[in-house]
Write a protein that binds this DNA or RNA. Structure first.
Lengths: 334, 334
DNA sequence: CTGAAAGCGCTTACAG
DNA sequence: CTGAAAGCGCTTACAG
């Protein structure tokens, strides 16, 4: 591989000039510019990103730390992040944290040593101290769903609470008269907000009882268990709003096994809008988050921060959309 | 951030000694070792990976280029790659190629500039020239499913042809007497092999006709279209072997819309073993590839190559497993 | 067992 | 508009 020195020699100028030309910093005479261009071409010169990283500051690399890429919510997000990153000339390192603070912190250390330009956290265990430390070390971060606190970084999320309200209203409009809620892990703000939205919509209704809310784990099996439990204590429920699609899929499975018909006897609505919701039988009504857009937004924000075009930390709440499908269809009789 | 120089000063030794201690290359006196340890601790010294990358050769970074992380097959693979990479102290950059040669080549250029240690290609457009070029530039690569040619890199794949045979035999054993095949894009070797396996198993059977093989695109919609077409030309088929799970899901959907019962009237078997296959109704029988294991194997291979513990290029064929589920259940009557 | 020195390939003030 | 030189933070022969 040719180096900047080779190019300088061939073009008959100094390396400083080559560098200026490359980075478009400072003026370069048109003539010498031509010579440089030519030299670069004939030598097939490619500047070393590593040397640049050492000498300058930027490595043109960002990191995406998420809980688990195997979780169906994240691939699309990751895709969006990579798409916009590569558009802006950035490369993305990805890591799974399994929502464990240790793994997150280990990654942070590693990434610092690599002079990473910035980090996107889609993982929720980052605490205030970590964030403060990040800020001190000058490496920008942006979070998904929840930030370490309200000020240390920008946050992108969707309207979880409103979305949950939408879901319940939709179930009511579809004729449900007793709607249960399966909520996710309470240490996740998304799960909390969705539960609040459910409560907002049902707390004043005559049939409401706190026992209509049961916990799940945001996974299929959690949705199944919760549904079994629910139908045991409340055999008369005719609607289930699950805190995410995975649990809704579990609900569908459990109901199917209990030979309870969806949507005839019980209607089911999920949250997230993952692809899986389209292939269940019946297809699953869901409150779709703009997953791709969230990923695109979060990475655009990060890049802006990195390039110094953004110094305030803000919260971006994106709109959700209710997608009605067969699992909540009205007026389907036995 | 403290540098190696600071540590050297505090410990009262030269930077060379610090470096030796850090890399465990060459002997270091026990006493000075203690001093160094202490100095590192008090300064909270963390060696810069970037400087290491420039001075030495390794960046401890590998890349994973896949067609599209949104495709349900890849997240689990990516997870495996990241798991073993991080175990060995490597970090992984990921990129989507959309199976476009241009994007792949752009990434290769980028990665070279970053002194990446090695690349895993799960993308299939890499040609012989690229591979040769990679070999020349000394950057190890390992491929999934298919290599550029038979010698320029190691390849990890699963037994596609055998798996397809398994699928057909299973359908036959379940009572099918006319089995169709929906095949994937013929430029993908996996699709070719699975088709061959199907042919192996059926070509000598009296009912076989080439028109029982129709093309799909490895996506849900392709599976749907192919199924409609198939039942139009062959209303009497009672089994479908789809080249992958996504198309099998499409087949299930199409059959459901045509009000054809699965498994009573038509039995369906997929290939891959993605999570989605467990949530369809009926659940989908499939030939499961050891996806996680494939990812783990491919990254272990790459790391071995990087660290010089492997210089031959071999092909690793992993076993597949038929997972019988309801979509091919025998003896279910109308 | 340890140090001085060159080098990895750039960028960035500082002069001119 | 351009060059000489220092510096980014390490590693690696080469001496000793």
């Amino acid at each position: 591989m040719a180096t900047i020195r080779d190019v300088a020699k061939l073009a008959g100028v100094s390396v400083a000039t080559i560098s200026r030309y490359l980075n478009k910093t400072g003026y370069v005479n048109v003539d010498t510019e031509h010579k440089i261009k030519k030299a670069i071409e004939t030598l097939k010169y490619e500047p070393s990103s590593v040397a640049r990283g050492l000498a300058g500051k930027q490595t043109k690399t960002i990191a995406l730390i998420l809980p688990d890429i195997s979780n169906p919510f994240f691939p699309e997000l990751a895709r969006a992040v990579e798409d916009v990153a590569s558009t802006y000339g950035y490369t993305v390192i990805f890591g799974n944290s399994d929502d464990q603070g240790v793994k997150e912190r280990t990654y942070i250390e590693l990434l610092k040593k690599k002079y990473i330009d910035g980090i996107i956290f889609a993982s929720n265990t980052l605490n205030r101290d970590d964030a403060v430390q990040m800020n001190q070390s000058g490496i920008p971060i942006v979070c998904l769903d929840r930030g370490p606190d309200n000020h240390s970084c920008s946050v992108v999320r969707s309207k979880n609470r409103e979305g949950a309200q939408l879901a319940v209203q939709h179930l009511l409009a579809a004729g449900c008269r007793k709607i249960a809620h399966i909520y996710g892990p309470m240490d996740l703000i998304t799960a909390q907000e969705r539960m609040k939205g459910y409560e907002d919509a049902v707390k004043s209704l005559p049939w409401f009882s706190p026992s209509l809310m049961v916990s799940g784990n945001f996974q299929i099996n959690g949705g199944m268990k919760a549904t079994e439990q629910l139908l045991h204590t409340h055999p008369d429920i005719d609607g289930i709003f699950a805190g995410n699609d995975l649990m809704a899929v579990g609900a569908l499975k459990a109901l199917h096994r209990m030979q309870i018909l969806v949507p005839q006897q019980v209607k089911v609505c999920g949250f997230d809008g993952i692809q899986m919701a389209e292939i269940t039988e019946p297809e699953l009504t869901t409150v779709a988050q703009p997953i791709y857009e969230m990923g695109a937004t979060v990475s655009r924000l990060l890049i802006k921060k990195i390039e110094g075009n953004l110094d305030t930390n803000e919260i971006y709440e994106l709109d959700v959309t209710l997608i009605p499908r067969r699992s909540t269809q009205k007026g389907v009789h036995l």
